[in-house]
Amino acid sequence: MNTIINFLFSAIKFGTPLMLGTTGEIVTEKSGSLNLGIEGMMAMGAIIGYIVAARANDLFLGILCAFLFAAFGALIFAFLTVTLQANQNVTGLALTIFGVGLYKFIGQSLMVSGKYPAMKTALSNMIAEKPLPLLGDIPYVGKLLFSHSIFVYLAVLICVMFWIYLKYTKTGLKVRSLGENPAAADASGVNVNFMKYIHIIMGGGICGIGGLYLALVVNAGGWNDYWINGFGWISIALVIFASWSPMKAIFGSIIFGMFKALQIRSGDLAHEFPKVLGWLQSIPADFYQMLPFVVTALVLIISSMRKKKEGAQPAWCGVNYYREDR
């Protein structure tokens, strides 16, 4: 039983950055922009958020900086695509290259100069995975759901908030109208460009928090070149898996978190249930690493095969809107 709990616990742990990345991208796509720069924005948020958090020894400041710097990346994207009408695909890729470049640059420079900050106990205590009072004492469930890092609750909270925002609020309705038909929204008096800016920036910021989580919790602040390692790209694909709903994104992220968790827990699982899951051990670790990408590819293909009106990509997602176009 403990093995299963541990496994699911890890799934939630590894699913959290995906949750944030996916929600960020959903907000962006719902407002009509396809930002392929999630990986870059996560990287920017991760490195700068981490350094500030570690230097100041303050988690909140770190989260704020992660949000702001990722939002800055998103601002570049918004300026280029909304105001300057640049191609969204290329701009997003450029943003990824920029963000990852910046991340490596800062990390490497600090390592070389020996100024790379280590995490202090106060900070690591703040983000530690410890049981919540009362709820954490419930057998099994307490360990599975209520013994996480504070980040995990924050991520779920953000997902739920944006789910309500997009689905049940008036502003959310306007946002959705942007993605579906900006011309109609414009004709109804919605300020298209302003709303797009706000949501691209907000979406980017949320991704940045996801990046910070990868830095602090998953990698415990130890510098390496691959903190982000495709989490951003999986997030973009998860948006499709979650059919543009932040609520479904929570579950989608946990499922994808399981693939990641298999990498470290497959041995335990095989050991615990040799008859049913013994085969897990015979599969090389590289295939577990590959798994999320394979599943994502399959999701992409399958979702393109069935065509539905609702729960599909917003019709104008990825297309720039210029009012005077004829």
Partner: peptide, 14 residues
């Protein structure tokens, strides 16, 4: 200038 997947009310409401 209507949004296909919205209801009539939502189209007006935006």
């Amino acid at each position: 200038k209507l949004i296909d997947i919205f209801s009539a009310a939502d189209n007006i409401w935006i």
